[in-house]
Nucleic acid binder design. Structure first.
Length: 650
RNA sequence: GCUGCUGUAGCUCAGUGGUAGAGCACUCCCUUGGUAAGGGAGAGGUCGACAGUUCAAUCCUGUCCAGCAGCACCA
């Protein structure tokens, strides 16, 4: 019999007969290792202890102490155990797929009746019984015809489809968890008793399309989370609660920032506090753009369909546009306008007004452009996905040769803005030419290279998404990472060879002939609404001092301090701070609590002592201690902190 | 848009086939209190909208609207 040699993590090399399984290898080393092992990593692939190895390989035996493989096995086995529990309880339910996802797994079922929360409880209970039974797990490789015949006999049409979709040459594996069988690529644990009965939880049930396609049947997806220990599960559930506490919809209410209501779904009603943050951010962006050589413009919200027909949006995106019909005097037909869903066609109109020379390029036109898009009802989410929003939009008209320098300049601006707003980390993705596109290959070559070279001036790591560019040009997407590790795509930089053509943008070149400019669409924040949502969640409501809607509350301890509070507040306001006096007939405890809940960064408490000394006592949000200082000193200190980052040090 | 769930006071929620309640918030009174809720009283609701069943609907049924979770979508 042929021999294979296996390399162990410590560098040792040992020979085994071909076809040896990791379980046998473990047993050959030590019975204790055989007992502890749950899977193997063979040449980097996650390997079932029962799979035979046919050739030389590097092998590592995994135990429950190895977090990544352990969690994958636990979650994957639990997906099977859940599917089995569901079919035990409701044999008529059809099974489909059940992959491992972050923190857990899901499994999609086809069942006419919806699963209820009570059903989830029953399923969990049955799962624990299956775990307690310590059913053995077994694997076999079948041929395609047998697997298809089996699933047809079982009345599992989805599984038949899955078997048919497995590429030629890949093994078709069947797994048994006790008497229950599932098609699965594995690997799995050795018996259900290895699963932690107290470290998983079924979370929710929701609809999901078969194979992720909206044209297919909607299945019922049950989500579960699982960890190795009960404490890890508890920690995860606690983390979810903490994340819920920084939900911008909740904080928006608590901090009185904004609200949404039925009569204007997806459109934000900004309250004084929220609008203050919004305006502060907008003012900041306006300064940054001006300093970076942009010129600000403002274009109409309501624009005749004719322009959208010219730009091509009418054909492609009409269903997502808000239409405004007007019965004009004397006209037979109503005039149809659209609320602009984007600013670019209007910006080309500004560009086209008057003949442009190559000397005018690059021309950077910026607009805080108010846009409306009819987003699908189910997609809306607080400030994160709305129907009415404002972009920090700008279009750069330039020559092909200027793309690289413009892109490099933009990258510098973007990273500086993100850093100012508290996001040090962001990732870049370059999407290159798709199959269907406009523009010559020479132009695409030039543009893609320009974007790539611009990135390389800033950093080495970026992701390439081949074929994912828009039909009109390559693009960069920027994803920032927030305080709890979530990623948000905000910035974008897109070259466009199409719109200048469609809308007839031109410039007179050095040669006296007319040329077509390239248009660069770019945004840093994306939409103000969404970015503010991200900021609120990133800071859990505790916005940096310069952005905080109410920076200082002057709270009196006794009513004798009211005049001093008025004087203090006036001084703060005169120094440009957003300060309010709270002279209500309430105890200081009450005021401190209320303004802490409202995320006011600084409370100045004034009692008899402060009145007598002409001082203020500073209490900062999240800190226990207080400091008593002279008023002038406090004003100087706070005014310094209130200076926006781009104006610091001036 | 699809599937499921939800919609009662500003907020968080309880409740019933005979038109409603709690806590917090709000108003007034008492209290002048030193760093996360002092005490008392009061006011506040077309029970998401529209139909239907019923002697009677906030409650049952249907349609619609909105929200939540997920899926799909996101120029």
């Amino acid at each position: 019999m042929a021999e294979i040699s296996l390399t162990f993590p410590d560098g040792n090399l040992r020979s085994y007969p071909a076809g040896v399984t990791p379980a046998e290898v473990a047993a050959s080393i030590a019975p204790s290792l055989a007992k502890k092992s749950i899977s193997a990593t063979v040449d980097g692939a996650h390997w079932d202890l029962a799979w035979p190895m046919a050739q030389d390989a590097a092998i590592t035996l995994n135990t429950m102490a190895d977090s990544a493989p352990a969690l994958e096995l636990i979650r994957h086995d639990l997906a099977h155990v859940m599917a089995r529990a569901v079919q035990d309880l409701w044999p008529e339910v059809k099974v489909t797929i059940g992959p491992v996802i972050q923190n857990g797994w899901y499994y999609d079922f086809d069942r006419d009746e919806p699963f209820t929360p009570e059903d989830l409880g029953a399923i969990e209970k049955r799962m624990r019984e299956i775990i307690a039974a310590r059913d053995p797990v077994r694997t076999e490789v079948w041929d395609r015809a047998r697997a298809i015949a089996h699933y047809e006999a079982q009345g599992e049409p989805f599984k038949v489809e899955l078997v048919q979709a497995i590429p030629e040459g890949e093994p078709i594996r069947m797994y048994w968890h006790g008497p229950w069988q599932d098609l699965c690529r594995g690997p799995h644990l050795q018996h259900t008793g290895q699963l932690p009965a107290d470290a998983f939880k079924l979370m929710s049930v929701a609809g999901a399309y078969w194979r992720g396609d909206a044209r297919n049947k909607m299945l019922q997806r049950i989500y579960g989370v699982a960890f190795r220990t009960r404490d890890e599960l508890k920690a995860h559930l606690h983390m979810l609660e903490e994340a819920a506490k920084r939900d911008h919809r909740r904080l928006g209410r608590e901090m009185e920032l904004f609200h949404l209501q039925e009569e204007a779904p997806g459109m934000v009603f900004w309250h004084p506090n929220g609008w203050t943050v919004y305006r502060t951010l907008e003012d900041y962006m306006r300064r940054r753009l001006r300093a970076a050589g942009y010129r600000e413009i403002k274009t109409p919200q309501v624009v005749d369909r004719v322009l959208w027909e010219k730009s091509g949006h009418w054909e492609a995106y009409r269903d997502n546009m808000f239409l405004v019909e007007v019965a004009e005097e004397g006209a037979k037909e109503k005039r149809i306008n659209a609320l602009k869903p984007m600013n670019c066609p209007c910006h080309v109109q500004v560009y086209n007004h008057g003949l442009k020379s190559y000397r005018d390029l690059p021309l950077r036109l910026a607009e805080f452009g108010s846009c409306h898009r009819y987003e699908p009802s189910g997609s809306m989410h607080g400030l994160m996905r709305v129907r009415g929003f404002v972009q920090d939009d700008a279009h750069i008209f330039c020559t092909e040769d200027q793309i690289e320098a413009e892109c490099a300049g933009f990258l510098g601006l973007l990273s500086s803005v993100y850093a100012d707003l508290g996001f040090e980390r962001f990732d870049i993705k370059l999407s290159t030419r798709p199959e269907v596109r406009v523009g010559s290959d020479a132009v695409w070559d030039k543009a893609e290279t320009a974007l790539e070279r611009a990135i390389l001036k800033v950093r080495n790591d970026y992701e390439i998404d081949p074929g994912e560019g828009a039909f009109y040009g390559p693009k960069l997407d920027f994803k920032l990472t927030d305080a709890i590790g979530r990623e948000w795509q905000c910035g974008t930089f897109q070259a466009d060879f199409n719109l200048p053509e469609r809308l007839g943008a031109e410039y007179v070149g050095e040669d006296g002939a007319k040329h077509r400019p390239v248009m660069l669409h770019r945004a840093i924040l994306g939409s103000f609404e969404r970015f503010l949502g991200i900021l609120i969640e990133n800071y859990a409501g505790k916005l940096p001092f310069w952005l905080a809607p109410r920076q200082v509350v002057v709270a009196t301890i006794v009513s004798d301090a009211d005049p001093w509070a008025a004087e203090v507040t006036a001084k703060l306001v005169a120094a440009g701070l957003r300060a309010e006096a709270d002279t209500r007939n309430e105890k200081i405890n009450y005021k401190v609590r209320e303004h802490s809940v409202g995320k006011v960064p600084v409370i100045l408490a004034l009692g008899a002592r402060e009145v007598a000394e002409g001082t203020v006592t500073i209490r900062r949000l999240g800190e226990q201690g207080t400091r008593t200082v002279a008023l002038d000193e406090a004003v100087r200190e706070l005014a310094g902190e209130a200076t926006p980052p781009d104006l610091q040090g001036r």
